[in-house]
Simulated assay, not measured.
Amino acid sequence: MSSEPPATNDEEPTVTCSELLEQIEDEEEELDRERALYGNCDVDTCTYSQGYVRRQALFTCMTCSKNEQSIGMCAACAYHCHANHDVNELYTKRFFRCDCGNTKSGHQPCKLYLNKDPENTLNKYNDNFRGIYCTCKRPYPDKESTTSDDEMIQCIICEDWFHSQHLGVSLPMEENETNQMDMICQACVTEYPFLAFYDEIRGMITPPAENNATACLLSSSEKNDQFHTIFLRDGWRRRLCRCEQCSKLYDELKLTPIFDDADSIQEYEKQALAKSENLDGDKILADSLENLGYTQKLEVLRGINEFKKTLGDFLREKANGDGVLTAQDVTTFFAGLQEKRQERQRTMFMPPDNCKF
């Protein structure tokens, strides 16, 4: 007969060191995504003075959107002026000027930039500013959705977001998962029919390696009146026809800025990541400590160093043992830190904060 006690459902939950590392890596990946989206944001300065920003992360305030008025604001205003409001993220949108504090926001003043124009006449608003998306005109996330597949894809022209199952076509299956693809919705292809010729997935047109500026690439292409959602491979802007006739058409339709490589979300994220990676962590810490008293600074720095050393010793000890962490292990670790700090306070003389020496 086995002497081992029977297993119960009340056993201590455990996590291996490798599982802990995987969780940390997942958190770092999520942080990278946030940095790619918000790395260009200054959360203390309104972007209004920059005019109609080429691309920026935008937010809309449902609390201030009265009488079907759509309002969009920069990250700084969402943080400082609408902190306790019902605010929705809009990801990024192009050529938009912050509405916070103008007539669209009612009596809600902007705390960061006074005396704004009553209205930003060049701003464009779609259903997203009212909290609905896609052809189904539903919110995101949709709490009433009956399917778990809630993937959303943004059209690069109208910048609305669409459920993958509402695009009218199947998603392309790319062998190389790192290959970025852009989507143009059916409504935009219908509005700008020439875009249908660039549906590379269906091979409707294959521009030559060197684009001849005098010859139109579309002149010999077969006309197609069947307009549907299209997908474009990375680098598609460089393969667009740039003949005189097409270039003039892009200008007339106000599509020229969209057809510039600098407009791509990939370029925006690249710049945002570069900006966030250049942040000096030591400088941020130094700035945070600047207003503290001398003894408070010593305590903070001592605590940081002690935590790093204790955590390293703790993880090495566990890795050299059975490699398993339990919830009790984590509780014991932090309790030990607190006990050490209290013991130091009892045995060590600490001068008052206003002591000058």
Rank of each mutant, 00 (worst) to 15 (best):
L249E: 11
E244R: 12
E244L: 10
E252H: 06
S221E: 14
L218I: 11
N212I: 09
Y250D: 09
G203W: 07
I201Y: 04
S247W: 01
N211V: 15
K248I: 09
C246N: 03
L217Y: 01
S219C: 13
F227E: 08
G203S: 07
L240N: 01
N212Q: 14
E252D: 11
C216G: 05
C243I: 02
E222I: 06
G235W: 00
R242N: 05
Y250V: 06
T206W: 00
T229I: 03
K248M: 12
D251C: 12
R239D: 08
R233L: 11
R202Q: 11
R238A: 12
Y250L: 10
T229H: 09
L232G: 03
N224T: 09
A215I: 14
G235P: 03
L218F: 03
E210F: 15
H228V: 04
D251H: 09
S220M: 13
F227G: 10
C243K: 06
N212A: 11
E244C: 02
L253Q: 13
D234N: 09
E222F: 14
L249A: 10
C246Y: 04
F231R: 07
Q226P: 00
E200R: 05
F227M: 15
E210G: 01
R202K: 12
N211Q: 14
W236C: 02
E252A: 15
F231M: 03
W236A: 03
